[in-house]
């Protein structure tokens, strides 16, 4: 037999009853990377398939949202914040990534239930694909964000822009952790999907997306500081609206909280995944 495929040497002997180690699982997910690529591509291309403007909608969507906000907030709801449309826009795009990753992640396993019941593959692939799809979508939206920022006359700070990369990564980690958690729990507890709709709405208001961190009364700041999305959204706003380097201390605390969520999500997922095929 041709054994040219180098992978799998470590994976080849499988024993149920033995616990799968963390490293084994990671290696296996890596060997299924093409599945993640294929799912992300299928999802991104399929999203606007059949519509006249097709993939252009990826850019049109945030642009039109921006139009609505700038009209509403410059004529009806005057906020007193300078360039409020931009203030909102640079925070909203990352928030939409997070919120659609959590909600989409929650549905990701149930949506593929026929596959989960009939084919073996590392189950982690499904939430990873959903989050990655939304992440790529956000990066594409950032083309629009950059264009709008430049057109509105903000001088971007190069060093601050470099900080976008770690901020993206931290938000991805947090979103992935949440998606692991919600996708696994939703399989056993279907009401989760509906509960999450409300939770994410409340979460958005408990994060300085629509307003700035400064207007939060000091006695409530602790709640906001324990919310990992607070420093992440603030960092985006620092970089793109204030064009300054974000606060390092709050970025570190966001990283730590993101990693904690990822670990909790991963452990929950590992515990629950064994019975997915039966519960679906």
């Amino acid at each position: 037999m041709q054994k040219t495929d180098s992978r799998n040497e470590a994976l080849s002997v499988r024993k149920t009853g033995q616990k799968e180690s963390f490293l084994q699982t990671v290696r296996e997910i890596y060997s299924y990377r093409q599945m993640i690529v294929a799912f992300v591509r299928r999802e991104l291309r399929g999203r606007y398939k059949g519509s006249f403007l097709g993939f252009l909608w990826t850019f049109l969507n945030p642009l039109l949202q921006l139009c609505v906000y700038s009209i509403v907030f410059s004529t009806i709801l005057k906020s007193g914040i300078e360039k409020y449309y931009l203030f909102l826009f640079v925070a909203l795009i990352p928030w939409i990534f997070f919120s659609s990753s959590v909600l989409g992640g929650a549905a990701s396993i149930i949506a593929q239930k026929d596959m989960v019941k009939k084919i073996y593959f590392p189950r982690e692939v499904l939430p990873i694909s959903t989050v990655t799809t939304n992440f790529v979508n956000m990066l594409l939206c950032f083309i629009v964000v950059f264009a709008v920022v430049i057109l509105s006359g903000i001088k971007l700070n190069f060093l601050a822009l470099l900080c976008l990369i770690p901020v993206w990564i931290v938000e991805y980690i947090l979103a992935l952790g949440m998606a692991f958690l919600t996708s696994a729990v939703t399989v056993y507890f279907r009401d989760m999907e509906h509960i999450l709709g409300i939770v994410m709405m409340a979460w958005q208001y408990l994060t300085p997306v629509l307003y700035s961190y400064d207007i939060i009364p000091p006695q409530y700041r602790l709640i906001f500081d324990l919310n990992p999305m607070t420093p992440i959204i603030s960092a985006y706003r620092d970089i793109l609206y204030e064009s300054k380097v974000p606060d390092l201390k709050s970025l570190i605390s966001a990283t730590v909280m993101g990693l904690v969520v990822l670990v909790i999500g991963w452990i929950t997922f590992s515990k629950l995944k064994r019975r997915f095929a039966e519960e679906l």
């Binding site: 799998n8 080849s12 002997v13 024993k15």
Partner: peptide, 8 residues
Amino acid sequence: IITTRGRI
């Protein structure tokens, strides 16, 4: 216990 050897 189920033991399998090789890609399935």
